[in-house]
């Protein structure tokens, strides 16, 4: 797998076409996790897979312009912290999380979409970070 130049022209073109669609599908699954099947984790992994596809097709350097490693770590920690805050807010408030009034709307379910978004941000960037670490290790070993 030639890491610097990426794969052939066909793969690059198809990836350029489908990358936006995949990431929009992931966001759709995250946002409608409380109405239709889906949820934060699945949507986050789909976003990760879109970035992994981009990395496999175009090589390492093009992706690193968009998502740096430290930025990845920052986003992941931020998602985890937001979810921790939401989950422990119930202890302070001493009452249950407020349910929404209008059902079947995107923001009509109280705190659940916020939780979904936080989990998806954390999972997406964290798993991408993990994959990036594995790739980096393999490359260092080959270059050695």
């Amino acid at each position: 797998m030639s890491n610097e130049k990426g794969m052939s022209l066909i793969v690059k073109t198809v990836t350029r076409l489908t990358f936006g669609l995949i990431i929009i599908y992931g966001i759709y699954i995250v946002l409608r996790g409380h109405i239709s099947p889906g949820g934060g984790f699945a949507g986050g992994v789909i976003i990760t897979l879109s970035f992994i596809l981009l990395m496999l097709a175009f090589g390492k350097d093009n992706v690193l312009k968009k998502l740096n490693q430290s930025r990845c770590l920052t986003f992941s920690s931020l998602g985890a912290l937001i979810f921790l805050f939401i989950a422990t807010a119930g202890f302070i408030n001493k009452q249950k999380a407020v349910g929404g009034k209008e059902h079947f709307a995107i923001f009509g379910a109280g705190l659940i979409p916020l939780c979904d978004i936080a989990v998806s941000v954390m999972v997406g960037t964290g798993l991408f970070l993990m994959f990036f670490a594995l790739v980096l290790l393999v490359e260092e070993k080959e270059g050695k």
Binding site: M130, A133, L134, L137, V138, K141
Partner: peptide, 12 residues
């Protein structure tokens, strides 16, 4: 994932 990273380290 943790197991795989450990396996890679062992192989190295």
């Amino acid at each position: 994932v943790v197991l795989i990273s450990l396996a890679i380290r062992i192989y190295e």
